[in-house]
Amino acid sequence: MACPPAAHPSPERQPSVKVILASADVQRVVDRIAHQILEKTQGAADTVLLGIPTRGAPLARRLAARISTFEDVDVPVGVLDITLYRDDLRRHATRAVGPTQLPPGGIDGKRVVLVDDVLFSGRTVRAALDALNDVGRPASVQLAVLVDRGHRELPIRADYVGKNIPTALAESVKVTLVETDGADEVRLCGGTR
């Protein structure tokens, strides 16, 4: 997933890099998802946001912060590491296990909104649903993603989508966030554009 920085336009025949969402766009999209969550959950009552590492975790915190700004509601936030539930563990060298942090009130009987940066094959979400099943019994589960790039391999869809980006399989979508990478941006890399 090597993706050269967009600031330096690549010469001809190099893999192309296109900025899909700039910093301000990312802010706007997060705000919109926060509004949608409030709307669809009747004010985020009994709702818990669980970010999927790596970038789902800061996104979940941002959503919670925006919800709190808009409606003065404190939505519990947690992190759900799905490493041990992945279906591709044997295709790679052993992956490091990250922390799972559930909010103090737990998730039993709550509406859990899983948060991730990119929705692609759906396998990560499948792993997250399995992980969720082992840590508690939520009343319902929803999914919020910054980008949906298509190419689903499982019957999974998002409840909240920041931006739909039609992509070719050869392309990659790279999300960077201030918290993890120093800047907010979504780029589309590779392919023949």
Partner: peptide, 19 residues
């Protein structure tokens, strides 16, 4: 560090991971 994460499983209702 991994053991610390594994330790949380002991406190769960489902003490099992599919890895």
């Amino acid at each position: 560090d991994t053991a610390a994460e594994m330790a949380t499983v002991a406190g769960r209702e489902v003490k099992k991971l599919p890895a």
